[in-house]
């Protein structure tokens, strides 16, 4: 198990390093200069130079890169140029909101997907399947912003049951009942495509498990369909479902950009938009790198989890 993990780590670290360099380089090639954004109309060359030096932008490219990396290792992310404040603080606030939203969305997607695909397979009714299939396909075909706006329109404006956006005013823990209401719409919106993809996959996987010989044998022995599905088919279908979910987690962050915009959720997605448009290098760099890291780590975790669920991979290492 551990050795499997260790084998996978070097390439993950390599990807991170390459990405960090690429991000650092690309940002500096983008037209628009943070100094111009901060210096005024009548700013003298001296004051522009002072700002430039203040930001550390007068140093050679390589030394800027190395000092940024050094800061990263010391967990010192630097100061934001334009948004203001410590990048670490900005990141923590944003990340908390995004993580809460994403985890809530994942939970919703997971529970819904398990329920719908288990019901679909256990019941195996023609009409139910057709209905679930239709809902599912629409869930996949509906753009996130469309579903988000529909949700706001229906549940916040026409029937003012839930907040139209924003985070709970007193934090998540002070009033969990209030927090749930704030989370419900954005999390469901973000969960919708994930649920659709996952439940479709899981249903198929369960069905194909049910066609396996061992199931036929068990069925002949008089085991009920529910037990067959839950006790036998599900454990075997889970590993590949986890892979699918892992891929989805990576894309969730992208989806979060849209959902955060619609629901004015002050998370990483809106932070990155703000930072890029303000040429706030320190914030953008860290955010882009973080998004790569999330992807790489979920990939890693997915593989490990899959290996743990499926001993063949763990032992054989056939990947």
């Amino acid at each position: 198990m551990l050795s499997y993990l260790v084998r996978r780590i070097p390439s993950a670290v390599g990807v991170l390093f390459a990405a960090s360099f690429l991000i650092f380089l690309m940002l500096r090639l983008i037209p628009g200069d943070p100094v111009d954004a901060l210096a005024g109309q009548d700013a003298t060359q001296e004051s522009r130079d002072a700002i430039r030096a203040d930001l550390g932008l007068d140093k050679p490219f390589w030394s800027q890169y190395v000092s940024w990396l050094g800061g990263l290792f010391r967990l010192d992310l630097g100061q934001s140029y334009r948004i203001g404040g410590d990048v670490g603080d900005l990141l923590r606030n944003g990340a908390l909101n995004t993580v809460v939203l994403t985890v809530a969305a994942l939970l919703i997607a997971l529970v819904l997907a398990l329920v719908t695909s288990l019901v679909a397979v256990i019941r195996d009714s023609r009409w139910l399947n057709a209905a679930l299939n239709a809902v599912n396909t629409i869930g996949l075909a509906l753009p996130t912003f469309a579903s988000g706006l529909l949700l706001v329109l229906v549940f916040a404006v026409v029937f003012p049951l839930l907040p139209s956006g924003g985070t709970p005013p007193e934090g998540y823990l002070a009033r969990p009942d209030i927090s749930v209401q704030y989370l419900l719409l954005p999390a469901f919106c973000l969960a919708l495509p994930v649920w659709a993809g996952l439940s479709r996959f899981l249903t198929e996987a369960l069905r194909s498990q049910l066609r396996q010989p061992y199931i036929t044998t068990a069925r002949a022995a008089g085991v009920s369909r529910t037990r067959l599905v839950v006790r036998h088919a599900l454990p075997n279908a889970l590993p590949s479902a986890v892979t699918v979910l892992g891929i989805q987690v990576g894309t969730l962050l992208g989806g979060a950009v849209l959902v955060e915009q619609i629901f004015t959720w002050p998370g990483l997605g809106s932070l990155i938009e703000l930072a890029i448009s303000g040429r706030d290098y320190p914030v953008v760099q860290v955010l882009l790198l973080l998004s790569v890291a999330v992807f790489v780590v979920t990939q890693l975790l997915t593989d490990v989890l899959q290996a743990w669920l499926d001993p063949r991979i763990r032992i054989g290492g056939a990947r």
């Binding site: 390439s11 990807v15 390459a18 990405a19 690429l22 990576g250 894309t251 962050l253 992208g254 989806g255 950009v257 849209l258 997605g269 990155i272 882009l288 998004s291 790569v292 992807f295 790489v296």
Partner: peptide, 11 residues
């Protein structure tokens, strides 16, 4: 390819 795929598309 890993690096390219690692960026969420919208970002």
């Amino acid at each position: 390819f890993d690096v390219v795929l690692a960026f969420p598309t919208l970002i």
